[in-house]
Simulated scan of single mutants.
Amino acid sequence: MITKRKIQSNSYKVLIAFLFTILLALSSKISVPFYPVPMTMQTFVVLFTGVALGARYGFITLSFYILEGALGLPVFSGTPTKGIGIAYLFGPTGGYIIGFAFSAFLAGILFSNKNYFIDNRNFLKTFLKLIISLTPTYIIGLIWLGTIIGWNKPILELGFYPFLLGEFFKVSLLAILMHKFSRYKFF
């Protein structure tokens, strides 16, 4: 039986998911000068979404985000100048965007322990879980990139190596923040 409280709870979660899609869109638009390529905070927000909302709502949030972009809203990095909508998703970065949903899902699973913020204060363990959570983005992204531009091109040199330092920075920052605010429970 569906109760009024359950409807309100689900409405609240959908609203939070929508607010996180706005945060994702903003994080994709802000480019930070970094070496060797400029960096956005998008993967930081993807991982934070999974950690904060859990596997189910993290995946739903990223699915909403992908749907917003597919419908033509300029939520992805480089839109609208590099294209919008489905055409953008079928471009070289589409696989990474699809991978975001699976990274958020995996982060939600790895940090699903209800008492994580109280019980787990091991920085290295948190860091490694975040790195593992990020792997679906790069696996799906690299497979997609290779399919789009051809496997005879240097796929790792184009779609992975230039981003390693930035990802290390973002994962480190998120792990530090998670430990700094470990006594607070988000949701």
Rank of each mutant, 00 (worst) to 15 (best):
Y35P: 00
P38A: 12
P38C: 13
Q42A: 11
T43V: 15
T43N: 15
T43Y: 09
V45K: 07
L47F: 07
F48V: 12
F48D: 03
T49L: 11
T49V: 12
T49E: 12
V51N: 12
A52L: 09
G54M: 05
A55Q: 04
R56K: 15
Y57M: 12
G58T: 04
F59K: 09
F59H: 02
F59M: 14
I60A: 14
T61P: 04
L62H: 12
L62A: 01
L62R: 03
F64L: 10
Y65A: 00
Y65M: 02
I66V: 13
G69S: 03
G69C: 01
A70S: 13
P74K: 12
V75M: 03
V75H: 01
S77L: 02
G78S: 08
G78A: 05
P80Q: 10
P80N: 08
P80D: 10
P80V: 10
K82D: 08
I84A: 03
G85R: 02
A87P: 00
L89C: 09
F90M: 14
G91C: 03
G94E: 09
Y96F: 15
I97Y: 05
I97D: 06
F100D: 07
S103N: 05
S103G: 15
L106P: 12
A107V: 01
G108A: 04
G108F: 02
F111M: 11
S112P: 00
K114F: 01
K114Q: 08
N115F: 01
N115Q: 06
Y116V: 00
D119S: 08
D119W: 02
D119A: 07
R121C: 11
F123Q: 07
L124T: 14
K125E: 13
F127H: 11
F127G: 11
F127W: 15
L128D: 02
T135P: 04
T135S: 12
T135N: 05
Y138P: 01
G141C: 04
W144L: 02
W144M: 02
L145W: 02
T147L: 14
T147P: 08
I149A: 13
I149S: 12
W151T: 11
W151M: 07
K153A: 11
K153D: 00
I155Y: 01
L156A: 13
L156C: 09
G159F: 05
F160W: 08
P162G: 09
F163E: 08
L165V: 11
L165M: 11
G166H: 05
G166K: 05
G166I: 03
E167M: 02
F168R: 03
F168C: 14
F168A: 15
F169C: 13
K170N: 10
K170C: 10
S172Y: 11
S172V: 10
S172T: 15
L173C: 06
L174K: 10
L174E: 11
I176Y: 15
L177A: 13
L177I: 12
H179N: 15
H179A: 09
